[in-house]
């Protein structure tokens, strides 16, 4: 009897530990954890200077409206190109519903991605600058941005990178408040609508 009680108590504690370690059974991967945790605890985004593809400098994020962004690098042969296409589809999805939300593809490789690279990436994916533009931060701001948005960038073996790509949402208070799958158009739309 004693043994059964001990074992059952241990099993209950064990379930609690696993519940805790998976954010209540919602996240078994680090990317899942990021999405769950950010939605619950938005993080303030300090002002950053971004150079957009028309060559202008913007202090960012602008307050008072939601902003969508994703991190990219323009020399990426695979997933960024797909996600560039996804971002274009997202733009069309939102403008069709009458939502005019600023969208940024932000390069985390500003050394390689100078103005011409940003422009040709924008051209290739049909980003006209309004509402979607391609931008780069200053080189020494990259590490802080990746850390803040919990983006892990690792070099692949062909001179490029792999990273956890997602559509990131900044709320009107200037807080990083959501991370979504690049094709979760409906979820992103309802998140944006809830912020307007």
């Amino acid at each position: 009897m004693k043994q059964v009680t001990f074992t059952l108590s241990a099993a209950l504690l064990g379930c609690a530990a696993i519940w805790q370690a998976t954010d209540g059974g919602r996240a078994v991967t680090a990317e899942g954890a990021r999405r769950v945790q950010i939605a619950e605890n938005p993080v303030h985004v300090p002002p950053v200077s971004l150079e957009t593809m028309d060559g202008s400098l913007q202090m960012w994020p602008a307050q008072g409206q939601p902003i969508l962004l994703e991190f990219i690098y323009t020399t990426c042969p695979t997933i960024c190109q797909t996600s560039g296409g996804d971002f274009a589809e997202l733009r069309d999805h939102l403008t069709d519903k009458g939502l005019d939300v600023p969208m940024y593809s932000v390069s985390f490789d500003p050394v390689t991605d100078a103005l011409p690279e940003l422009q040709s990436y924008g051209e290739a994916h049909g980003a006209s600058g309004q509402p979607w533009t391609i931008a780069r931060p200053e080189t020494d701001a990259v590490a802080g941005l990746l850390d803040l948005f919990r983006v892990t960038v690792i070099p692949d073996r062909w001179g490029g990178y792999q990273h956890n790509i997602a559509v990131l949402v900044i709320n009107p208070n200037g807080e990083f408040a959501g991370a979504y799958d690049t094709r979760a158009f409906a979820d992103i739309r309802s998140a944006v609508e809830a912020m307007l």
Partner: peptide, 19 residues
């Protein structure tokens, strides 16, 4: 025995999570 085995299995399960 039971609690000890549970401790081992739970710890191992947590270390099997990709996160």
């Amino acid at each position: 025995t039971g609690p000890t085995l549970v401790l081992a299995l739970v710890s191992l399960a947590i270390w099997m999570l990709p996160r």
